[in-house]
């Protein structure tokens, strides 16, 4: 199947939007804003961890 731009970029776009909101959020306020920032900037880290976890482990 040949993918279009939407199919290729929907996840990267979501991650980018989340990251940008996270970067700005902690600037706006503390506590709730900080928490949102940690969670949203943590998503790329979770995806990275998931990618690494799926890699076949060598003995």
């Amino acid at each position: 199947m040949r993918r279009g731009l939407w199919m290729i970029f929907r996840w990267p776009l979501l991650l980018a939007v989340l990251s940008l909101f996270g970067l700005v959020s902690a600037l706006i306020g503390d506590e709730g804003y900080d928490l949102f920032s940690w969670l949203s900037l943590g998503v790329p880290l979770v995806v990275t961890a998931w990618v690494c976890w799926r890699l076949p482990r060598r003995a």
């Binding site: 990267p12 991650l15 980018a16 939007v17 990251s19 940008l20 970067l23 900037l41 790329p44 995806v47 990275t48 990618v51 890699l55």
Partner: peptide, 20 residues
């Protein structure tokens, strides 16, 4: 090929942060 794929996926998921 494995590292090419990893380079791509890691690059794209961290793009916004690295850019900023």
């Amino acid at each position: 090929l494995k590292w090419l794929d990893l380079h791509n996926v890691l690059g794209i998921v961290t793009l916004a942060w690295v850019l900023v």
